[in-house]
């Protein structure tokens, strides 16, 4: 298996925070709208249509862009020396310290246990009609996936591309997107659990659910 569950749990207990660096998307003069230690909220709403907390404003040639946080957490690493000054693109202007919750821990561990199919490029994704129909009828069923199966459709510029599964046979364990979502390049789409690992994975998930309650 190559994964020691106790080690993983120990790791996440001691690293319960993740730090996300916030970089400037382009050059401009920045003006902070948050302070160190301030709690910020990520995007919300059914479609994440409501932006997160406003972090800073960057102005380039009278074009003002508002930059919002993508994560919940606490602001750290504000750089007062940059306030009101011109910065280059890619400059780290602050960080967000995000506390992982139980489901995020499970997600991170699953990405190490499952065969993850990732988005080859930013596009809209759909489950193949076959999988979609099966899940529609029995949402909890474990669908068998074989190498060569067309499992996801990528839609870009009115061009549909079927994406085939190439790893070992298994069952569909996790779907990381909603049909029709725009998914960033490299983000997970599906998690396939090799059949011989299924019981182990279920034990892992159960153990985390139980252990995390006790922390």
């Amino acid at each position: 298996m190559g994964i020691n569950l106790n080690d993983l749990l120990r790791h996440y207990r001691s690293h319960i925070f993740e730090d996300y660096q916030v970089e400037t998307p382009h050059t401009g003069v920045i003006s902070y709208k948050v302070q160190d230690g301030q709690t910020v909220e990520g995007p919300s709403g059914e479609w994440l249509q409501r932006p997160g907390t406003l972090l800073y404003i960057i102005e380039r040639e009278k074009n003002v862009k508002k930059m919002y946080t993508s994560w919940n957490g606490q602001v750290t690493g504000i750089r007062p020396d940059l306030e009101g000054h011109f910065v280059e693109a890619g400059e780290v202007v602050l960080s967000i310290r995000h506390r992982l919750d139980k489901n995020e821990i499970i997600d991170r561990i699953l990405t190490q246990v499952l065969n993850i199919l990732r988005a080859p490029q930013q596009a809209r994704y759909f489950l193949s009609s076959d999988i979609s129909a099966k899940l529609g009828k029995h949402p909890e069923c474990r669908i068998a996936i074989e190498p060569g199966d067309e499992i996801v459709i990528m839609s870009l510029m009115k061009r549909d591309t079927a994406i085939s599964y190439k790893e070992a046979s298994g069952v569909l364990y996790k779907v990381y997107f909603r049909s029709g979502d725009i998914v960033e390049q490299g983000s997970p789409l599906l998690g396939i659990c090799p059949s011989d690992r299924l019981q182990y994975v279920q034990e892992v998930v159960q153990r985390i659910r139980t252990d995390w309650e006790n922390m």
């Binding site: 510029m157 009115k158 061009r159 549909d160």
Partner: peptide, 20 residues
């Protein structure tokens, strides 16, 4: 992207798919 309209109404359409 590539709908063809005459006076706002669709007269032609193009779909595409990738096949390997």
């Amino acid at each position: 992207i590539n709908d063809i309209l005459i006076r706002g109404r669709k007269v032609a359409g193009v779909l595409s798919e990738t096949v390997r």
